[in-house]
Design a protein around this nucleic acid. Structure first.
Lengths: 229, 229
DNA sequence: AGCATTAGCTATAGCTATTAGCCTTAGCTG
DNA sequence: CAGCTAAGGCTAATAGCTATAGCTAATGCT
């Protein structure tokens, strides 16, 4: 969170390119600090410049506009969020049982990066629309979830509708709700001990309640297990 | 939505007070139009003044600051939202069966007033913090829900935990999720045919799945009913 | 009819983003 | 190592923003 060094690709191995990338990363870091203080929509180029010890117009050597700065942060956030989810997915068990760890990882990331999460999940900065490129990871993540849900359906853990657009919309709404409540009510609370994010672990059961699996082999065992949990 | 005449109390029966109240209502109306175009955080006093056909400083005769204008809209929105929910509650059946109509009424209101909903449910306007007075209806609504859930618990339709702070947080998260998805993804879509808000009717069942009622008289009948629904 | 208040105005201060254009110097290249 | 390019800073200026101060005319109550 603190450093953006890895998110800026240096144009070349030049010393100049390297220094330029460092400055860009520093600007992004200061921008996030600014947003943490004044709200995601309250980013001021002038204040960032002051923090950097530079006159405001100099910032435009690095980012074409305030919107471009937002877009960079939006894109970095989306990439990191996707990466976080995929890493969690690697270690998660297959099927429905793997939902909770992945959801939890995403929720934790959002709690630890409230400013970026606000920018990404509510689009509330007037005049800012993310570029297609910056938005791309969000579409990838949605595809990931599509596959994950489909796998759970094939395992007989969820009803067929769960893997459709409708089911994915419901699943997205469930996680969005808890993250939204967190961001608007206690953005600085962190993940552990959050009033709202502790409910994230319940999402798989809630989702399964909305799309119950068809009765089949193993249904009785699953039923018993879910009752004791 | 179009008129704010009923939301501004005229100081007296004076002709002056009446005209003043009319102008205030007109300003609020134009402010919402502005916000619909430029985003909730993109309200500009100058643009509102231009629309009203007046110089910017003249607005300050009616609202002390931009924040005061936001606060008025925030308070009006909260009052209307509370009123909408209570009206729906009057006609709703008692117990868990009454949840859906009330939730739906709130969701519909949010879809029809996306700008006010954004201002109220995400607090994303930099520097704006609602006054206690403007926020009060939100607390009342939470108390209403507390009673409604408690009644359902007493009827044996929900588990005991549902009526605690934790349960209410979960319920709030469920509705917030769908409204949030609506506001960020298709704010201009309206209620009917919304991808996300159609899931609102499922909330009671989801909530009941999280706080299942203790087995007791009528449990079998309830079980059968919920399966056929 | 008289007069206080209201509701407009202009001018101004101090922010903001952004563009234009200048100048120095860092550092790559021949 | 010399020279040149372009990176990266600067100042000045424009246009827009919120907000305050203070003036003026007319509204409409008493």
């Amino acid at each position: 969170m603190t450093s953006f060094a890895d998110d800026i690709e240096a144009g070349g191995a030049d010393r100049r390119s390297r220094r330029r990338a460092e400055t860009k990363a520093e600007i992004l870091r200061l921008a996030v600090e600014e947003m943490a203080e004044h709200g995601a929509a309250g980013l001021s180029m002038s204040r960032v410049a002051r923090r950097l010890g530079v006159q405001p117009p100099s910032l435009y050597k690095y980012f074409d506009s305030r919107a471009a700065l937002y877009d960079a942060l939006f894109g970095i956030g989306q990439r990191r969020y996707l990466r976080t989810a995929r890493r969690a997915a690697e270690q998660a068990p297959p099927g429905l049982a793997g939902f909770a760890p992945v959801l939890r990882a995403g929720a934790r990331w959002s709690a630890e990066n409230p400013v970026l999460a606000q920018l990404m999940f509510w689009r509330t900065v007037p005049g800012f629309v993310p570029t297609e490129q910056a938005y791309a990871p969000a579409l990838e993540l949605r595809r990931d979830w599509g596959e994950r849900v489909r796998a759970a359906v094939e395992r007989g853990e969820l009803g067929a509708g769960a893997a459709g657009e409708e089911g994915l919309d419901l699943l997205a709404s469930l996680i969005a709700g808890m993250v939204s409540m967190q961001l608007s009510n206690e953005p600085d609370a962190g993940f552990e001990g959050s009033r709202f994010l502790r409910h994230v672990d319940r999402i798989p059961d809630l989702f399964a309640a909305a799309y119950p699996p068809p009765p089949g082999p193993g249904a009785a065992a699953r039923e018993k297990r879910s009752r004791t949990t």
